[in-house]
């Protein structure tokens, strides 16, 4: 679904990533690790077209990112659920609307999607926070809400940047459960995380591949993780 082929990314003076090749196939489950600042978020952004590679090609749903116009890029993003590290909400809208945002902007009938929305909010444990504004939420609540927003459109690919950074162990297991469930339905999942416990827990359930960025290159980490 998303393929990176010999991708390099440079900013200003330095090269952050070079010769990165990876393929996120339907039903695949990837973890992305690496030290802070190694380019995990940049790699994520390359996957959903927020950044364009400075060399190599990124293809998503069989089309080169470079050839997409702005509308095509928008349509592509409706098929990719992204959990951003800093969450990014519309602070003036209540949480329920923020989670339903992808449905609203793509013109879905909100009346029909209400049950779906309630179920998802229930799953991430935010039912009683539906009317809260994003600034009133705790870090963990924001992350759960971001995950819910990423999943509401039932996307083909889920990209999550540190989705469990601020939640407790029990909740992170719950979120992982949700992602594993989606993965079993054939979605491609890529999670950037430092959390080795989470990776181990996932590997007990699914054939997860662990990718590691070091020295600007992407490596497949050993099975010992």
């Amino acid at each position: 679904m998303i393929e990176l082929d010999n991708v390099g990314y440079s900013y200003g003076g330095g090269e952050l990533l070079s010769d990165v090749s990876v393929r996120l196939a339907p039903g695949s489950f990837h973890f992305l690790t690496g030290p802070s600042g190694s380019g995990k978020t940049t790699l994520m952004k390359l996957c959903y077209g927020a950044l364009l590679p400075t060399s190599g090609t990124v293809r998503a749903f069989d089309a080169d990112m470079r050839t997409r116009d702005r509308d095509e890029m928008a349509m592509m993003r409706r098929r990719i659920g992204v959990v951003h590290q800093d969450c990014r909400f519309l602070d003036h809208l209540p949480l329920a609307d923020n989670i339903a945002l992808p449905l609203m902007v793509s013109g879905h009938d909100m009346g029909q999607e209400n049950a779906n929305l309630r179920e998802l909010m229930n799953w991430v444990g935010l039912s009683d926070r539906a009317d809260a504004l994003p600034p009133e939420l705790s870090g963990g609540e924001r992350q759960r809400a971001a995950l819910a927003r990423a999943l509401i459109m039932s996307p083909d690919v889920v990209l999550a940047d540190e989705p469990t950074g601020n939640v407790d162990w029990e909740m992170s297991q719950r979120l992982l459960q949700l992602l594993l469930e989606l993965n079993r339905m054939g979605k491609a999942v890529l999670i950037a995380s430092h959390d080795l416990g989470l990776i181990r827990a996932a590997k007990a359930h699914v054939q997860a591949r662990v990718l590691r960025i070091s020295n600007r290159q992407l490596h497949l980490a050993g099975a010992d993780l």
């Binding site: 509308d71 993003r77 519309l90």
Partner: peptide, 13 residues
Amino acid sequence: QVIEVLRLVGARD
């Protein structure tokens, strides 16, 4: 910021 968020969740221009 609002525009950026809307773009990221797939809103067209």
